[in-house]
Simulated assay, not measured.
Amino acid sequence: MTSRQILLGIALMAAMGPAVAQSDVELPYWASINVDEARMRKGPSPDVPVTWEYRRKDLPVKVVARFETWRKIEDPDGTTGWMAARLLSRTRTAIVTGGIQPMREEPSLSSAVAYRAQPGVVGRITDCKDGWCLFDVKGRKGWIQTDHIWGD
């Protein structure tokens, strides 16, 4: 085996890694876009037209179907289409919906407000319980009600 074949094999395994990791998860499941630019397509192939281009790393998406190394996703606006699995991560993120939402110190309405999040803000979720999720926006953490985010 030549060094070129070995490098090609390593590159192929790296590209397939995310797809294999997502192939055993029950549908639907939450994922996030893990690149700065990602294209949604009409079908599961690079040969079909692009319907949308995303330029927002960590945007939450819901994976609703699989076909080989492609995932059919739904975005926060309800748009559906196909995206290469390598562009997705299992990192849990969410986007704030509605108006300005409080991020509280504890998962309780009576807890002090630590921060306020504007609609459209994307953050990482590390824990969810009893209708609340711990929401981290670039190091600013607080508990937000699940009714006020999409992606939980």
Rank of each mutant, 00 (worst) to 15 (best):
D147Q: 06
P18W: 08
V122S: 08
V35L: 07
V35M: 05
M40C: 03
S45D: 14
A31D: 06
T79E: 03
S3I: 00
D130W: 01
Q145V: 04
A11P: 05
D147I: 00
R55N: 14
P102R: 09
P44V: 08
M103G: 15
R55L: 03
T80R: 13
K141H: 11
T93S: 04
A117T: 10
V61H: 01
D130S: 11
D36M: 10
E68I: 03
V63S: 05
E26V: 06
C133P: 02
A94Q: 02
W30M: 14
I10K: 13
M16I: 07
T91P: 03
G123Q: 10
G131K: 00
A85C: 11
D152S: 13
P44R: 08
P18I: 04
V50E: 03
A38M: 08
N34K: 07
R104T: 03
M16S: 01
S110G: 00
S3G: 05
D77Y: 13
S3E: 15
G120M: 06
G139S: 10
G139M: 15
T93L: 01
I10E: 14
S110D: 15
M13G: 02
W52C: 14
R140T: 01
A65L: 05
S45C: 03
A112Y: 04
A117M: 13
A114D: 05
W70E: 05
